[in-house]
Nucleic acid binder design. Sequence first.
RNA 1: GGCGCUAUCGUCUAGUGGUUAGGACAUCAGGUUCUCAUCCUGGUAACCGGAGUUCGAUUCUCCGUAGCGCUACCA
Length: 412
Amino acid sequence: MSENMKKNVRVRFAPSPTGYMHVGNFRTALYAYLFAKKNSGDFLLRIEDTDQKRFIQDALEKLIDILKWAGFEYSEGVFIEDGKVVQKGNFGPYIQSERLEIYKKYTDQLMEQGHAYRCFCTSERLEEMRKQQQAEKKPPMYDRHCLNLSKEEVAEKIKQGEKFVIRQKIDTEGFTEYDDLVRGKVKIKNELLDDQVLLKSDGYPTYNLANVIDDHLMEISHVIRGEEYVSSNPKYVQLYKNLGWDVPQFAHLPLLLNSDKSKLSKRQGDVAVEDYIKKGYLKDAIINFVALLGWNPGEGSTQEIFSMQELIETFDLSHVHKAGAIFDLKKLDWINGQYIKKLSLEELYAAALPFLKEKEFFQKAAASRQTEEFAKKVLKIEQERLVKLTDVGEENRFFFEDIKAEKDMLRW
RNA sequence: GGCGCUAUCGUCUAGUGGUUAGGACAUCAGGUUCUCAUCCUGGUAACCGGAGUUCGAUUCUCCGUAGCGCUACCA
């Protein structure tokens, strides 16, 4: 393929606003960002807020704050300016709840072409059906109860005000195959695929529909997302084909795990990036650490410390692992210490001050005298042994508490 | 239960049809250091199990096991 035939690289980060930035999600954002930068492509932010039951007020702001904090600059999508949500770019809107007509349009098209159909089944019936299938040790799948409803039956049900969803009519013949940039060729028997719901009865799309439509319409070249979508992907591939669209490149990232190898969860420690910031980890350390969870620079490199620039230069999806990685705080501690050591005194002071201000001994000292000069002296001594910013000053609180000791020390 | 994916030191990982299986974190020992930390040196520590292919498998194939994911009108 010649250079000018090559499609522009366009990558998106598409979180749903659930209230905080999960570190697993953060890593997905990082990899997507690195990939975009490495290939001089576009990086954009789309918001997947199609689940009205889980809507959370401040979630969007928090999400954007973290992206900004991390330095994942995006050129397109959803921004917050002067406290207001704004959208930029030629492929908007970038908030899915504002794209409802678009989803409607394409579901209509799919129905006309026989790739989708209305389903009036109640959740009770579906539950019953699944139970039975399980009892018979069959895979729980929609039984196509509503597939062959006549036009009259459908019209009648609609007239009666029965609620319905729209399901994808899976092509059950043969296989669906696609290339995954981290997993290689993936091939699956179509008869195993379920007629998944595309449009909910409230008119909102499911992820299953929205991700395909948006990724296509926004001209996303590489779909980078978590491993949890691997098994659904063949259905998405069918959808692309049904719609007559080219299939993008896929890259499904391995999961981040707890120390017992279960999926990284709140119950076993902190999972929000915010938590790690509060705990006194530096931005660059967190990024460095997370980047190494599931990726390595390859070529026999033994480099452990990477600046953002170096990450951009070396990052490559082909060196992303297939297996999940345990989130090991010990290594984070070490990396954080490395970064703290590299800071100038001014930088360290700036980074440490918010943590110092939390300390009672510092507050007392600051109330009665000028503390900046002194704090810097202390930081200088502590710098090489400091692991987390939350520990700042602790080993030298004595100096803060005793004004004479402080004076002696300043004379050094 | 069904389907799929995955599997190298405790952890993150490199790597190969023949290697002393390499690095980093952690850990242990020693050195530097007034002490602690940093730093330096060294050590312990791994190819999930079983078959098969092969002159030779950690590497390739199959089976098993385990873990994870999906199995929602959640994403």
